[in-house]
Design a protein around this nucleic acid. Sequence first.
DNA 1: ACTCGATATTGCCAATGTCAATATACCTGT
DNA 2: ACAGGTATATTGACATTGGCAATATCGAGT
Lengths: 199, 199
Amino acid sequence: MPRKKDYHHGGVKTELINAAVKALKTQSLEAVSMRKLAAAIGVSHNAPYMHFKDKEALWLAISDAGFELLSKEINREIAVHSLWRERLVAGCNAYVRFAENNREYMLVMFRPSTPGIVRALAPKGAEALGLLIRELTAGAASGEIENTDPEKLAVLIWLMLHGLTMAKLQIGGERGPLRQLGSEDRIGWMLDKVLALHS
Amino acid sequence: MPRKKDYHHGGVKTELINAAVKALKTQSLEAVSMRKLAAAIGVSHNAPYMHFKDKEALWLAISDAGFELLSKEINREIAVHSLWRERLVAGCNAYVRFAENNREYMLVMFRPSTPGIVRALAPKGAEALGLLIRELTAGAASGEIENTDPEKLAVLIWLMLHGLTMAKLQIGGERGPLRQLGSEDRIGWMLDKVLALHS
DNA sequence: ACTCGATATTGCCAATGTCAATATACCTGT
DNA sequence: ACAGGTATATTGACATTGGCAATATCGAGT
């Protein structure tokens, strides 16, 4: 239904987002320009500004979509387990896997200036952190870990996870001390260390 | 000895770096431009390109200086203790304190594109990580922690430390779950968790 | 049929990174 | 002291970019 003649071609907003995400798969954040995106979807260099006040607004939209996707992914992988410990590991793995498969989104979500970190650690917490806290609370309730401050523990775990993830994204993951640390069994190892299980 | 008449004013290179560092104290990375820096130190907009091939080259130089400063700082604070555990804590605290007092440098050292993380985690490791490994090895040798993989443990600790630090830098540190986590005693708490001391 | 609001276009501007050509000062060997 | 070379700095130019303003085009409701 869009694209009558040529002027109003209809889906600039979503097409622009798609183009941006695709561009980010091969280019860096700063290398992506409004004008090139506009050209890529075949509109004039100012058409984007109908739908996004700013370049920043574009990133914002993409970032939102990214957080949405991430939460969905984590939820999906958590749901297949019932024991809190397995759910925790699954969630962490989902986080890392999402980052690897969606580098583009992560770059936007946690770009330096306007911070995904703020959102991810906001008082009420993003979904992802909330899930973590929930599982840790469950673990504490079951008596398997010390009942001190599940929230603090969650932040700590998330910091590790996030640090690991972003580091892997920057490095590319081929070489260096992170290679082994990133593989799935190592995440379990990390969690063991941090949780200091009673067992 | 510099600044004879007006043309060759001598210290463009160092003055440019100083100006950039100063500018970064109040502005974001992308807000700092070669031309403004040149203007700030009173030279033409192309003078900088005598001393730096690129804008990137400028960041590189500043980044190098930053890593140098960081290592010095950590060494200085570690040196006043003799027990490995105290040295470890002192080093971690030094890391965080350096980041808080030198936000400018950290922003450049760990800017997204060309990665400080690669350098900090490079095979031979930056000074800072090397120090960490050394203390952990000492701890393992003394039998106070498990003797498994001091290097892996070091990376893990660094990831937490770095994640915490960068998150604090982005947030500003006033509010949110990181406030308490960042204070000095909390770093000890983090280390306890990760080290899972025998004691 | 006419108007209005959303959408898209063209034109424009200042700022920026960077290249090329030119000017200026310093240094070195004679 | 001087000539020439070299490092340093300047001016000029250019393409790209983000973003504003004015204009054009279309669709829907009266």
